[in-house]
Design a protein around this nucleic acid. Structure first.
Lengths: 134, 134, 134, 134
DNA sequence: GTGGTCTAGACCACC
DNA sequence: GTGGTCTAGACCACG
């Protein structure tokens, strides 16, 4: 799993985690039965207190998204309402709209925006590739 | 100008206002030089405290989006980011990173992401063009 | 760190704090990475409301002088203005204009003004050099 | 008289006016018996409401700095404690110190600072020369 | 009427 | 413990 936290967004960090796991689970990016990262190393990677990650996992469990097995870890449960393709596109469109508005105020045009997006997408792939090796 | 606040989203109310004003400015719904709604009546309309609206406007002023003149009101400024080019790129990169991770969780690949971004960028331009006419 | 507030100067208290922190940072009295006093105890010491100190710190953060980490505190950042060169020049020009008018009212001419400025600039550098050693 | 107002300093505009007249009067920049600018044109020049200038003049009269003759204007009264040279230098040094700190945070060095000061001083002279002609 | 400052006190997220 | 948000209400400067 790859997470992206924004400490200045004004949204609680644990809720950002919750949202990201929910989306990933609803789309099959993490398959049912797959384990989520363990709390301690994830907290370290995200530079966040363990309590914060634990709170996010607790929230996910109370929402029935994941299942915690004490001593083993947290596992994704099967989704009963996976997102359809058009729902996924619409969700992403909202996020992209926000980015486009941000670009406008920073006076960054479409060409450079797309170049940056391409670049950051590749960066994510490299990050995942490196993570897969270790 | 119509604003929609979500008191349960976990995101600070004043930041929701900030974002919505930025969107309105970006798509030309409010043109440079035009005034924003006055603080007191807007606070009443949105059922929030006057200080909350004032905080949003103060944030917008510190971001250079609006200019406030005591005794007169708050006015939209023309887009003209004071930041260095590399700073602007870096600021936008953070937003794009979040969108890229979102796309990954939504199981949407780079090609479709870029197509969507291109599309949303054009949509914003069209809105601005239409708004400039009226 | 010792702060002196003047409640009768007609200048907003939180802005007095902002200026004093900026002076302390500029002359090396607080080094990059060092924490500022915590909000609550400082407010008590200065006999002002906690919100007033918080507002000062928020302003310092928005100016890029400090970084605040929730749950940890507020820390001085290394000097690195994000503004374009011409914006920086223009911002400083306004301050210098005020000083020039002040000099004119004080019947102090250009030569002496420049000599004084040279002298005060060196004084700041010396303070910074001494502070860097300890 | 040349005035320099800062609408964002957090200090009341009328107090900025008061301070500037007081300094000029205490240093002989305006001689006893000389008239201050009339309220209406000054307000226009400074882009300020007439009430604001009137309030400043009222404050100056209550402090005994000026004398208002209805229908004629406001005149500077003789000072009984004019600033000595060292006092004037010290007062200006404080203002310059603030400008130097500002320059530091904008990462503008001594050379450029002095160049800017030289330039702004000349600009003030030209402004006064133009004003004297009309 | 406009926006700005300050206080007092409650609740929340994070360490 | 840290900082952040929001409310309610008072007072001020400016137009």
């Amino acid at each position: 799993m790859v997470f992206q936290l924004n400490f200045k967004s004004g949204k609680a960090v644990y809720l950002q985690l919750v949202d990201q796991v929910k989306v990933a689970a609803a789309c099959g990016a993490v398959q049912p039965g797959e384990p989520l990262p363990a709390i301690r190393p994830l907290a370290e990677e995200l530079r966040v207190n363990r309590n914060t990650v634990a709170k996010a996992y607790a929230e996910l469990e109370s929402q029935g998204i994941i299942e915690t097995v004490v001593g083993k870890g947290c596992f994704v449960r099967p989704t009963n309402s996976p997102f359809k393709k058009d729902v996924r596109r619409k969700l992403l469109a909202e996020t992209i709209d926000a980015a486009v508005v941000h670009a406008h105020h920073l006076q960054i045009g479409k060409d450079e925006f797309l170049r940056l997006a391409d670049e950051r997408f590749d960066a994510l792939e490299h990050k995942r590739a490196r993570a897969a090796l270790s």
